[in-house]
């Protein structure tokens, strides 16, 4: 069953220049460095990684909230990277975003009514009465109600605010929503409510999600495919189930081993990585993961690995898998 590709990101790059003063050479931070992936219609695609690995930047660049340095972002036939500001604005009714911090992403001076009507007004959808009706029904759908209409964001709890943020994103009935850590600022008990809400909305409105998170249990629960990012690069892409049962990249393995066990009797080998994440301003040579990799080879220090396919749309960027596949995975698990 071949499904329609909604978004394809090709060799996306986002570099930041950091000037160091008049006579010093400026530092280039490669926040997102040459990443590619595709998202098919209706699926939930996750970007996972440590903080600072570039996953949020990727999300923002796809929506052109920051200009990409290079590469192509093709959304349903339109190359977003090359689209001028005004044309991009009209395309925005098909792609929306849910932000991480529900306390910062709602204008404190606007009522819920104004916040939710705005997307409809901006994209000139419906007349005044229909808009209000839409807003009311959207409020109900996200679990709020009509009497919240004239309240200000500070009168709500974090979970309620995030529901408003989600309602704002969904009210235009977009095809695609980027959720940038939508639950990480919330209480654990509220997290599951919000996640379930997002899943229900997905069913109801046939949404496609790009779900950015560092929480592996959330990802396991709600996504179809996962891309693991490390220092601005995607190191592994696989179906969620596949990734959790059969991780290939050493970094993915370390990441998964950090998930707390669910049963006290469960035995789990914890892979502890040496050192810290290197600065993206001065990434290591070759494979950027090599200084911390438990299975690093000599080649890793000099050459960046190529991405290779390993069946079932599972791709890895690691030298270990560029060789004969059988020997080496065995070698890592004992290293």
């Amino acid at each position: 069953m071949k499904q329609k590709v909604l978004l394809s990101v090709n060799n996306l790059k986002k570099y930041y220049d950091i000037p160091q003063g008049l006579f010093k050479e400026k530092i280039i931070v490669k926040a997102v460095d040459d990443i590619s992936f595709t998202i098919t219609k209706g699926e939930t695609f996750a970007l996972v990684g440590e903080s600072g690995c570039g996953k949020s930047t990727t999300g923002r660049t796809i929506l052109k909230l920051t200009e990409p340095t290079g590469g192509r972002i093709i959304f349903d036939g339109n190359d977003i990277a090359a689209l001028p500001y005004k044309k991009m604005r009209t395309l925005r009714n098909r792609m929306q975003m849910v932000f991480q911090d529900p306390y910062a992403s709602l204008n404190p001076k606007k009522t819920v009514r104004e916040i939710l009507t705005e997307p409809l007004r901006v994209h000139k959808k419906f007349d005044h009465d229909t808009r209000l009706k839409k807003v009311k029904s959207m409020l109900e759908i996200v679990g709020l109600s009509e009497y919240h209409l004239d309240r200000y964001p500070h009168e709500f709890s974090g979970g309620q605010r995030q529901r408003i943020g989600i309602a704002r994103a969904v009210i235009l009935q977009p095809d695609f929503i980027i959720a940038d850590e939508p639950v990480s600022a919330l209480d654990v008990s509220v997290q599951s409510q919000v996640i379930n809400l997002m899943l229900e909305l997905q069913k109801e409105f046939e949404l496609t999600y790009l779900f950015i998170s560092h929480d592996l249990s959330v990802i396991q629960h709600m996504t179809d495919r996962v891309a693991v990012m490390y220092l601005g690069k995607i190191v592994e892409i696989a179906k969620t189930e596949d990734l959790f049962t059969n991780p290939k990249h050493p970094y993915t393995k370390a990441l998964l081993s950090a998930v707390p066990i669910t049963h006290p009797k469960e035995k789990k080998e914890r892979i502890i990585l040496k050192g810290d994440v290197p600065s993206p301003a001065n990434p290591p040579s070759g494979c950027t993961f090599h200084p911390r990799c438990p299975a690093a080879l000599d080649i890793c220090k000099t050459q960046a690995p190529k991405t290779s396919e390993h069946g079932n749309s599972h791709s890895v960027s690691c030298h270990l898998y560029n060789k004969i596949e059988e020997e080496i995975p065995h070698a890592i698990s004992h290293s």
Binding site: L63, R92, N93, Q96, M97, D101, S105, E118, V122
Partner: peptide, 17 residues
């Protein structure tokens, strides 16, 4: 630089608005 302004850009609100 506030996130709610970024959210406006993401919604498609014009710079003027």
């Amino acid at each position: 630089e506030k996130e709610f302004i970024t959210a406006c850009v993401a919604t498609g609100v014009s710079r003027f608005e």
